[in-house]
Structure formats: C-alpha cells, structure tokens
Design a protein around this nucleic acid. Sequence first.
DNA 1: CGAGGAGTTGACGTTGGTCAATAAATGTGG
DNA 2: CCACATTTATTGACCAACGTCAACTCCTCG
Lengths: 234, 234
Amino acid sequence: MVRLDRALIAGLPLFSGMAPADLDKVLEGATSRRVAKEGFIFEQGGEATSFFVLLDGRVRVVKTTPDGQQVIVRYIVPGEVLGIARALGRNTYPASAIAVVDCVLLAWPERLWPEFAAAFPSFGANTYKMIGQRLDDVQTQVVEMATEQVEQRVAHALLRLVQQTGKKSSDGILIDFPISRQDIAEMTGTTLHTVSRLLTAWEQKGLVKSARQQVTIVAPHRLRLLADGQTDSE
Amino acid sequence: MVRLDRALIAGLPLFSGMAPADLDKVLEGATSRRVAKEGFIFEQGGEATSFFVLLDGRVRVVKTTPDGQQVIVRYIVPGEVLGIARALGRNTYPASAIAVVDCVLLAWPERLWPEFAAAFPSFGANTYKMIGQRLDDVQTQVVEMATEQVEQRVAHALLRLVQQTGKKSSDGILIDFPISRQDIAEMTGTTLHTVSRLLTAWEQKGLVKSARQQVTIVAPHRLRLLADGQTDSE
DNA sequence: CGAGGAGTTGACGTTGGTCAATAAATGTGG
DNA sequence: CCACATTTATTGACCAACGTCAACTCCTCG
C-alpha cells in the first residue's frame, strides 16, 4: 500500500487548522482512485458508501428527474469535497457525479466522517462553513431562476464558471474544461438552442468566443453588466 | 426572570437525544420573544446576532434582490430553527424573516451555537441532519424551477405547504396561515396574475377552494398528478 | 364611509421553447 | 488514411406559455 503524502490535503480548506500528525491519521483511512473521462464517481440513488476529495480533474454533479431530464447542480474543481450525503443524514447519494475529464480522487468510507468531526474540532467547523457556503450558492441559484431571464441566467452561469475554473488565454479567460451548449442549458434551465443563439449573439458583440465544447470570455466586465440586467444598449 | 420550562424544547428534533439536565443548560442561554404579525425577526444583510426556534406562529423567509424583487425561500413552522447564519460561517443574515402571524420564539446569541455543538454531541449530529434536509429541499427546488412549467411548480408548492401546515377542514385540507396570490407567486417565480388564473381554473375543476388569503386543497391526489406532469385529460 | 389591499379577468405581446433541416467536427473500423 | 456514423452546433420558422398592462370588483379595516 502506497503511503499518501499529507501535502496532498494539507492545503485544502476542509483540513485547514489541523496538525500534520492529524493529517496523517486522516490519510490512513483514504484510498486514491482514478476515474476516466465520463465515468461515474457515484450514482444518484446509490448507497452512499464513500465521500471524496477531488485532487485533479473536473466533476459534474447532476440530478436526473423521474422523466429523465437532467439538471447540472454544480461543477467540482480540485480541492473540493463531494459525496458527503451520509454526513448530512442521508444514506443514498442525492445526485450523480461524473468525471468531466480524467480525474484523481481520494476516497474515505462515509463512517469516518463523524469520527473526523469528533476527533478534530476544526474539521467540524470547516464542514459547517463549507455546507453553509453551498446552501448559500444554491439559494442564490433559486433566486436567479425565479427572477431572471434566460439571458441573465446564462451570463451568470458562465461568470461563475470563469470564477471557478477560469484560465487566462490569448483571447480572454477560458473555461478550463469541455462544456457543451447542452451542459450550459442544463445548468440554467433552458435549451441548447437558446444557449447556442445567445452565444452567437454574444460572439458578434465581442463578449465571448466559443468553439466546440469550449467557451472563452473575452469581456467579463461587459458580460457582468448583461448578467446584472443592463439591457446593453447596442 | 422567568424560568423557561424544558418541555418547550424537549420534543424538538434539534434537541432530541439530549439529557434533561442538558436541556436546562441550553435554556439558560435563551430568551423568549414575541413578534407581531408582519414584524421582522431579522433582516437580510443585518448582523447575525441570534438564532431562533419558532415556538408558535408562522414565519416567512424572504430574499430580496438588488432591484427589489422578492423570493420566498421557505416557510417556518413551530419547532423549526431559523437564523443560523453564523453557525454556517456567515456573519450577516442571508435573508429576512417575517412573522406571518403573531409569533413566539426562543432566541439564543449566535456564539452559543459552537458551544452547544461542542458540549452536546447529539446537537451537532442533529444540526447536520437538519442542514442536510434543507440543502436537499432547496436543491429539489432548483430542479423544479429548471424543468417544470409554472402550473406544476405552483401545484408542488401548494402540496408542500399542505404537507407542512395542512389542517383538516370540512372542504379538504387548509393551508393554515394567511397566504396571498402574490406570496404563492414569490414562492414559484411567477406573477400573481398567473397564480390567480391557475387557482380559478383549479377551483372549477374541483381541485382547490380559495378565498382571500386562503387556500384549501380539496383533492390532493389529483393535484399531485397535475404536479407530476399528468396533462389532466378533462 | 372611504381608502387601500387583494383578487379577477381580458387583451396583447414577447420570450423562449419546439420542430426540423443542415453543417461541421470528431471518432471508428476497414 | 479514407468512408461513414455519431456527436455537437447552427439557424430558421412557428407557436404556446406566460408576463405585462389595464380596468374593474370586492373585501377589510380604520
């Protein structure tokens, strides 16, 4: 068994404030896991056996309705936690997690969560913070969906992705993983057609550049104005 | 100072599993508070000083957008907790809480939350469960907003209210607090006009009965079918 | 009794979804 | 390396859901 290096997790918000020796103890319970692009990390409705930290890659968290429609709940970037269903009192996963690109994760059995929370005080506090942040995010999303037009919602979604995974490129800021029109539609509750039309319109105005499974934000500031409801007199 | 009786909180999920002596300790930090109908319990953006348990009444939790639009995030019924912002790492309230009818609450200074969590293990576990439930609720709401038509969303909202606060009456199940068309609209991201039209249509079909600030569900099962997308061939 | 809040309803217009056809890019097997 | 299938994206035509605007009624409270 390969010994995992504590440097892997030392910098993560969830483990911040913990002593090096404690980090080693945490790592004793962990196993590392690779998941190929488009592979499932866990599936909606499946028994919640493990929770994860993403070390490398991108993960898409998706909820599927009984009639098969999909909604992308969030994207996960390295350093974030996923699959903490049981820690929150559930014993099945409420959504599916899918590798957007090849991914590397650490996995722990769910039963260790309460042990960690009991043994390491900062772990518990960090958890509350993280969940609080997440609750906030999703509540903001509800407000957006209730009050904004599609154009604003899509703009907000792109800006959030840029914030999370933006990478400077020659043309502007690139969303650093493959993302289709369909994906954006599933994040914002619209259709790929409408997203396509919006992106081409924005491209003509010089706000974004897009290609197959790729979006670059050229003028973030102007996109933000649009997202916040400026009717963009042009 | 009036001594509060531990029976007030003994039955609540948040405090379940705690010893009577511990309940008394918890109550030592509490003060009771009355808020008149339409009064604010706390305000969005205000410094988070206290968290609360609702003992009697109904509370509406509302988020207001920069341009003044309102979204009703949830309704609180007796026994539930509200205002736990700081426990989740925030120091301002992310929404406003307004008494829908005259209310009685218990209030604790926010700084006691971590103390309770540290001193009483079941308190921490109960908190996780509660937050988990709430996260789940609001995520379900996002999925609904993304995939359903207005009619289904309104139906789901009413069914949820019935579940939470339904009271048997001669005509069916009454939503047991004053609720306007505007309120329902703010829960579902639509307009009072559309809600009004839906309710009159449903009333003609015998699904509901409505009056000023009052809704009674006559045929919950048929409303559920409608909510779940049966196009209701009639 | 008057005013303001809540609700209803009609007419109309717009947003954005549906349907359909086509093109471009990517992967696959021979 | 080419032919073909598949996935992704674009774009036009059409239309329905639902929001907007406006007028009016009814209830409740002071």
